[in-house]
Amino acid sequence: MSSITPRRAAIGIALILLITLPAWVGNPYYINISSQILLFAVFALALNVLVGYAGLVSLGHAGLFATAGYAGALMLQAGYGHFAADGVAILVALLAAAVFGVLALRSTGIGFLMITLALGQIVWGVAYRWASLTNGDNGVNVTTRPRPFGLSLANADSFYYATLLIFLAAVASMAVFIRSPFGASLCGTRDQARRMNALGYNVWLTRFLAFLFSGFWSGIAGLLFIYYTNFISPQVASLQTSAEVLLMVISGGTATLLGPIAGAAIVVIMKNVVSAYVERWNLVLGVIFVAIITFMPEGLVPGSVRLWRMGWRAFRDRGRANVLRNVSEPPS
């Protein structure tokens, strides 16, 4: 029988909070914001597979996100059903990820970053320029949301639950993936690619498969996005989107499960909620990022854990010092 550890308790509480969220948030606007956080968390988790676990910083992931979104939106516009559109969108995203992977994995580090950046810009260029297909910067409307098992996802609550389900699946798949032998291999290629090769690993293929995995979840996030906004336009594929999701991963904490989720929450809340009250909200966002990078260079989640432990240790040691002093003091 498994016991209740603090970790399990925390996961349980988080799950209960997430599941009951519509009840205590109430207003559909905030439920929608929550859906948005979850869908960007899926995207950030997908990017984290590369940035955190493979040590490959991609600045072109908006390209994959948008490719899936456009594929889905255009299929729907052409009159196909949701099932076909979503299936094709995911296949197209995987295909795009394969192309991205083959081209970008010729290199690592800055080289990888520059190639992914260029590939992302190509997707943006196609979305913007191939107007007869993509309708240019006027974008493509998605008029309906899917109805899985006949359940309408039209209102905020139901869409939130659908997004939550996919988000949980993403988190679970990441957790399993990263604890697996393949996950360990991937981390090995990040830390010592040369040694991994000498140990018998196919470093390239390991990274390529990780790229596909990342592309798959980026594609899912892209689909969630078009169903959420009911719209896609070239700005979704822009460098800004790629940079934003990278910022989510880095600010939250790379190579952690919670980090990208926290990062997504910060960015989405700043952009959408705080901006209603603070005119210079992007300045505030900038200050927050600078603070995170200065005080918690490893990211918000690992940084908070470190600071909490330091604080706890200081608190505990102070207690101990008092005890010692009391003992050493001779009774008067």
């Binding site: 207003n27 559909p28 929608n32 905020a156 906004t229 952009k271 959408n272 901006s275 209603a276 909200w281």
Partner: peptide, 21 residues
């Protein structure tokens, strides 16, 4: 007054804010 940031996704979210909230 709501600031969309000049992009479609921002416009959508802000429209939701105005209508739903």
């Amino acid at each position: 007054s709501a600031d969309t940031g000049g992009n479609p996704a921002g416009a959508k979210t802000k429209a939701q804010e105005l209508i739903e909230r």
